[in-house]
């Protein structure tokens, strides 16, 4: 019974995950005429492309760090509120995500633009106009804004399920609040932190819409490079090779994180 239930999932998985992956692998490892080659990867090992990769990783890491710093206290606040208000808070937090991602990003363009809302308010107050849009900060802002819920929710889940007796025990044994947090709460919440970090880092490192809209195309990230290969140059082979490099990169960083997690936790993960 159990195995028969699995068939639809297996069909789904192979059609929409395994097959596309194999296709990407095929394109990445072949030339235009279909012969086997490693040229696509060789081409990627070039300072300009590596710089693009590095810049994407840098911005994604920065956004992830900001999300963590902003998201952790948020998750704690939600986890500590009484259950009725807590659900409302989670709902309010998720509500913006019901709106289209592009729409939310466009909204930031209206807010940050030269004649945008923020600059209008500044002008009103007699303050000088700021260049808020089309730079790296705007891109990071866009990433943090869009991906923050992915950080908050897993941490919140872990925190709200945490056994309160550990905390009480620590307090009984004379630990002050700071010590309780760093020695008990934070280590216990690591699985949530790790899944939050992964869920923010992955979309952040591969996004191409945010740098295009909020970065004004001034910053080229790895997602833009892939998109350029597919929709403008028509070089599916190189585009696939870049995607493979990116996937490997994400895979390695995830492996490192889970290893770190195991060392700390003895293998209790969220997923």
């Amino acid at each position: 019974m159990k195995s028969r239930m699995a068939y639809p999932y297996i069909v789904w998985l192979s059609m929409f995950i395994v097959l596309p992956l194999l296709l990407i692998l095929y394109y990445g490892l072949t030339a235009v005429d279909g012969s086997f080659t490693l040229d696509n990867f060789q081409r990627f090992i070039d300072p300009i492309y590596l710089r693009v990769l590095w810049r994407s990783v840098e911005l994604a890491l920065l956004s992830t760090a900001i999300c963590l710093v902003l998201g952790y206290p948020m998750a704690m606040i939600i986890a500590k509120t009484e259950i009725k208000r807590r659900n409302l808070m989670v709902l309010l937090f998720i509500l913006p995500m019901w709106m289209n991602f592009l729409l939310r990003t466009y909204a930031w363009m209206t807010l940050l633009g030269r004649n945008g809302v923020i600059n209008n308010i500044l002008g009103w107050a007699g303050l000088p106009e700021l260049n808020l849009l089309y730079n790296a900060s705007a891109v990071v802002l866009g990433m943090v804004y869009n991906f923050l819920p992915f950080m908050v929710l897993p941490i919140y889940t872990v925190l709200s399920k945490m056994d309160q007796s550990y905390i009480e025990a620590a307090k009984d044994l004379g630990a002050n609040n700071r010590k309780v947090f760093w020695k008990v709460i934070f280590p216990l919440s690591l699985p949530g932190v790790i899944s939050g970090v992964t869920m923010v880092f992955m979309p952040a490192v591969s996004t191409f819409v945010i740098p295009r809209l909020l970065g004004g195309g001034q910053l080229m990230l790895i997602g833009n490079l892939v998109e350029q290969q597919f929709s403008y140059v028509g070089d599916w082979n190189f585009g696939s090779a870049i995607s493979i490099v990116m996937m490997l990169f994400i895979l390695i960083s995830m492996a490192l994180m889970t290893r770190f997690d195991k060392e700390q936790q003895g293998g209790v993960g969220l997923w």
Partner: peptide, 14 residues
């Protein structure tokens, strides 16, 4: 020659 154009554009953008 499209790949030369692509390379140049990537260099400018990056």
């Amino acid at each position: 020659f499209l790949s030369v154009y692509d390379r140049i554009w990537t260099e400018v953008k990056a």
